[in-house]
Design a protein around this nucleic acid. Structure first.
Length: 312
DNA sequence: CGCTTCCTGACT
DNA sequence: AGTCAGGAAGCG
């Protein structure tokens, strides 16, 4: 559920309540929610440490601790974090509760049990695997059309799968990818290696635009998402394609379609987002000036995206 | 690279 | 009973 704007909204909502606080006791109702170390060690290691700063990287929430270490949380599909000024009865899917020194507490609730917390040791064991490999933050300077182009050139996949890959750019999920592709007027099955410079430029711009909107609206709330204080976001009403299958496209009035791309439900406007033209896409990018030496780039361009682009 | 799997719950 | 859900690691 939570993608970059949602996780950032949660971070901002929690920060004033957590900054400077010291952890007290830990209640673990579901040991699976503690990804590292084991639940017992975790519950013994956290109390006494102070929260220095709440940060975020991609969809990871990072809690810097004093005197050392950091707590890392990932909400995955259905995770929520609720801060309460005093402990209340845990709900059905509450997985753990972190008490704070002012009598408040932070609850981790996760229906599908896919999310969890990590408390890496001093040697760095226990870091979530994906964290170190994340691509640039899409709202940072490091995220540019040129970066997108460099990554795109060496991959043979659809632009949809490309954007969902956290190594390319950190923090996008299914909803914001569909929204970004709509705003960039790119069909989700376009082979990413065939995007022109102009299209990459549009795409980078669209990604930043949808994420900024998402942040302004404090996130998308379909059913489960809430911020750290239990408040819904308003972005749902501003989505242009996601969740609007069959409804008129906000740009052309034609019906929004829904299909499956990269194994995910995918919403798009078939009129505004031109489908891939296999030959053009396979050969579009000029072979000159490939950043990687040794002819790899050329081979990539020559290779046919067999079975995908051609299948209309 | 795509596909499967981890989970639970809602819906058809 | 079967399908699907906003994430992402692991497998072939």
């Amino acid at each position: 559920v939570p993608e970059l704007p949602e996780v950032e909204t949660i971070r901002v909502s929690l920060a004033p309540h957590l900054d400077g606080r010291q952890f007290g006791g830990v209640e673990v109702w579901d040991p699976v929610a503690v990804r590292y170390p084991d639940a017992e060690t975790f519950a013994a290691a956290l109390p006494g440490r102070r929260i220095v700063r709440l940060g975020r990287r991609g969809k990871y929430l990072l809690v810097a601790l004093a005197p050392a270490g950091r707590l890392i949380l990932h909400l995955r599909m259905s995770g929520r974090l609720y801060w309460r000024d005093r402990p209340c009865t845990p709900e059905r899917h509450s997985r753990l509760r972190l008490h704070l020194d002012d009598g408040s507490c932070l609850d981790f609730i996760d229906m599908r049990r896919l999310g969890g917390v990590y408390l890496p040791d001093a040697q760095g064991r226990g870091e979530p695997q994906g964290l170190s490999g994340l691509g640039p933050e899409p709202l940072s300077r490091r995220f540019t059309p040129a970066h997108l182009g460099r990554e795109a050139r060496r991959r043979r996949t659809t632009v949809k799968a490309f954007l969902l890959d956290q190594r390319v750019v950190a923090g996008l999920g299914n909803i914001y990818v569909d929204e970004a592709l709509f705003r960039a007027r790119l069909h989700p099955t376009r082979p990413v290696s065939g995007l022109t410079d102009a299209e990459l430029e549009r795409l980078a711009r669209a990604i930043r635009a949808v994420l900024r909107d998402g942040l302004t609206m404090r996130g998308v709330s379909f059913s489960l998402y809430r911020d750290g204080l239990g408040r819904r976001g308003q972005m749902t009403d501003h989505l242009r394609v996601y969740g609007r299958a069959g409804a008129p496209c906000v740009a052309c009035g034609g019906p929004v379609h829904r299909t499956r791309v990269a194994g995910r439900g995918t919403s798009f406007c078939p009129a505004c987002q031109a489908p891939p033209t296999p030959d053009a896409d396979a050969d579009a990018a000029p072979g000159m000036g490939t950043s990687r030496g040794g002819g790899i780039g050329r081979d990539v361009h020559r290779a046919r995206l067999s079975g995908r682009g051609g299948r209309a």
